[in-house]
Design a binder for these strands. Structure first.
Lengths: 157, 157
DNA sequence: TTTTTCACTGAGCACTCTGACCAGTATTCT
DNA sequence: AGAATACTGGTCAGAGTGCTCAGTGAAAAA
């Protein structure tokens, strides 16, 4: 596990808020040398703390305003991995985890509409090895996905 | 709702894979003029298709290897928004949605360990208005969060 | 305590990219 | 047919990047 300090957190805050700033401008704003920011960013990427800088695409804006969470039970004997691989082939499936509890898999899916959600769920349940699916629809995003507050909490003094 | 075409998808693919490429290099790789890439990126940001270019921070690497999903029931009369605001104050709560079904809220939480998860859950259930919490632990990330396959599917010809 | 190691600073360098233009052309919409 | 839009390929000055270096301070190892 790699540690992060307050400066790392401030650097990531800044780049999250204004991705276009550039290393030089960032160093000015943070009051440190350019090489420091550069070295920190390199280290954060190398250590895997930062997985990437990909664009955050809003699924609503590309025509998929409906989000739903599905929990799946799979047949004993069917491997989790096999089922998950089949789910990965469905583009509307954005995320899959194996979980504890009565259900085996959890996944996040999106759809063009509630009616379209039925089509997506059909695609999911048709996967070999899936026994039962239970779906709830996300009505409103109360707290959008975020990591930065945690990052500050993780900062060790 | 904004439309995206195949070129938009290819641009975002490229920037997701290699965030450091820059507009000029991207235009070379994609075989289009620089101004085109620039204009597309501007439009995607302006239309809200791309919410940001923030760093994807790996929670495991900053000391929070345990992910869990909690569904909450809240008391009748307690507003969803009030409860969600209180949850937002807990840094380990990464995401909150209101949902259909027997439960009212869904949230993603992380913790330093299974023992630490108890601490986080305690922080959650102590929130005024929460009646009951049900938690499952994510064992393995079968399909990591992704949007790009969907983006290609959303491309209209 | 002394030595070593490491991160940060501030500076300099050649090189490249950016953002902003422009006119000309192709495509689509009205 | 005319208008609006998007793309091309070009220029320009200014700014940022990647890289290197020597010097400083602080913390860890000897």
């Amino acid at each position: 596990m790699a540690g992060v300090d307050a400066l790392d957190a401030r650097i990531l805050d800044l780049f999250a808020a204004e991705p276009r700033v550039g290393v030089l401008e960032a160093s000015r704003r943070l009051g440190v040398a350019r090489g420091t920011v550069q070295a920190r960013l390199d280290r954060l990427s190398r250590d895997g703390v930062v997985r990437g800088w990909g664009p955050d695409v809003d699924t609503t804006e590309i025509g998929y305003p409906v989000t739903a969470f599905a929990t799946l039970q799979i047949e004993q004997g069917s491997g989790h991995t096999t089922v998950a691989a089949a789910l990965a082939a469905i583009p509307e499936v954005l995320e899959v985890y194996t979980i504890t509890g009565a259900e085996d898999l959890w996944c996040r899916i999106v759809a063009r509409s509630n009616a379209d959600l039925q089509r997506v769920i059909d695609q999911v349940v048709i996967v070999r090895g899936i026994q039962r699916a239970s779906t709830v629809i996300a009505l409103a995003e109360q707290v959008p996905h975020r990591v930065l507050p945690l990052l500050h909490a993780a900062t060790r003094p």
